[in-house]
């Protein structure tokens, strides 16, 4: 199978390979069998990103399958990046699902470890973790480049050709090991990296400096994770509870300042209109901060794009992408499949 010099020929790969600053977004499937949820979210994201990550039982909560949701997204004209975690599938199930995903038209894959099941809604479940995310990257790139299954057995017929991604959390502990772990994932064959959410630019710059020293930016496209803050409470929650998030005080202060006109009032003193206006003010500030962060990230050598995680707030993607001067998204013609 020839994809004209591309590994997968996906839109995301084409955008990155042609030197554009890429934008990916995130779409969380519903905790139900309602495909319209995907269609509604897809409509909000279409045209504003080069590809959209479809989460895989995110936070260990049962949701519509990533592959099924990705197929709906494809039907809606949105290119999916399916996420796959090591928690729920062994190497047999992973490979089998990936053969199917490719046959269904999916071309991007993000390999993840997965949150532990104790976080989710089935804490009594048995986990799998047969292989880890680095090993998954090796497995899927070997399926593509060497046409072999993990067992070493040959893939007879069409091999699954994914543009393969991995994640790294630059500020999770031990912080000094993170650039090396990123390098390991690139060495394993990752074509792109999406990072945990970045709020602290100087800390991320230090991470990128080390990553450049290790040459990772030449091996894989690094997309920095960003996420708009929705309220000061959400910001504080993230800072306290989400591993790998450094949220500078200054940003929390800015979020609080945005809600200043309503500050000092008790809950019962606020009318529904007040609450709505305060929420809108917070959200506007959150989007503004996000745009500023993207602009700073663009200046860092080796950052090839951004991954916008506006979880359950897909409406925010449009103003962020527009505000950051990243709209419209480039249109690069699909590679012509060559016979044979």
């Amino acid at each position: 199978m020839n994809t004209n010099g591309y590994l997968s020929g996906s839109n995301l790969e084409r955008v990155l390979k042609n030197g554009y600053f890429a934008v990916t977004a995130e779409l969380g499937p519903p905790q139900s069998a309602d495909g319209n949820v995907i269609r509604r979210k897809a409509a909000l994201l279409k045209g504003y990103c080069d590809a959209v990550n479809i989460t895989d039982n995110q936070t260990a909560i049962v949701r519509m399958s990533s592959i099924a949701s990705a197929v709906i997204a494809l039907q809606e004209g949105l290119e999916p990046v399916i996420q796959m975690v090591c928690r729920d599938r062994n190497r047999l199930a992973m490979q089998s699902d990936l053969l199917g995903a490719y046959a269904l038209g999916i071309r991007n894959l993000l390999c993840l470890t997965g949150d532990h099941q104790t976080f989710g809604n089935h804490p009594t479940a048995k986990n799998v973790f047969d292989i880890d995310s680095t090993q998954m990257v090796q497995m899927v790139t070997a399926m593509r480049d060497r046409r072999v299954f993990q067992s070493g057995g040959e893939i007879k017929g069409q091999e699954p050709r994914f543009f393969v991604g991995a994640a790294e959390s630059p500020f999770a502990h031990p912080v000094e090991f993170r650039p090396y772990r990123l390098a390991k994932k690139a060495k394993a064959g990752a074509n792109f990296i999406q990072t945990q959410i970045v709020y602290d630019i100087p800390a991320f710059k230090a991470f990128m400096e080390k990553a450049r020293e290790l040459g990772v930016h030449k091996q894989a496209y690094i997309l920095a994770g960003v996420s708009p803050l929705k309220s000061p409470a959400m910001a504080k929650y993230m800072r306290e509870n989400v591993p790998g998030i450094i949220l500078p005080d200054e940003l929390i202060e800015r979020m609080e300042a945005a809600g200043a006109p309503w500050a000092g009032k008790k809950k019962e003193e606020l009318t529904p209109e007040d609450k709505k206006a305060r929420s809108a003010a917070w959200q506007a500030e959150g989007i503004k901060i996000c745009i500023e962060i993207i602009q700073q990230l663009r200046q860092i050598e080796g950052v090839a794009g951004v991954h916008i995680m506006a979880i359950e707030w897909e409406e925010a993607v449009k103003p962020i992408v527009e505000g950051a001067g990243l709209y419209p998204r480039p249109v690069i013609p699909e590679p012509e499949a060559q016979p044979g």
């Binding site: 532990h116 880890d132 959390s169 772990r181 591993p243």
Partner: peptide, 25 residues
């Protein structure tokens, strides 16, 4: 907690596992 061979995962914080603070990473 995830029997990783190429760890640590992104859940490692202040020396403990994401599962709970009682578990060293």
């Amino acid at each position: 907690s995830k029997s990783l061979l190429n760890g640590p995962c992104g859940g490692s914080l202040n020396g403990h596992c994401e599962v709970n603070e009682e578990i060293p990473c």
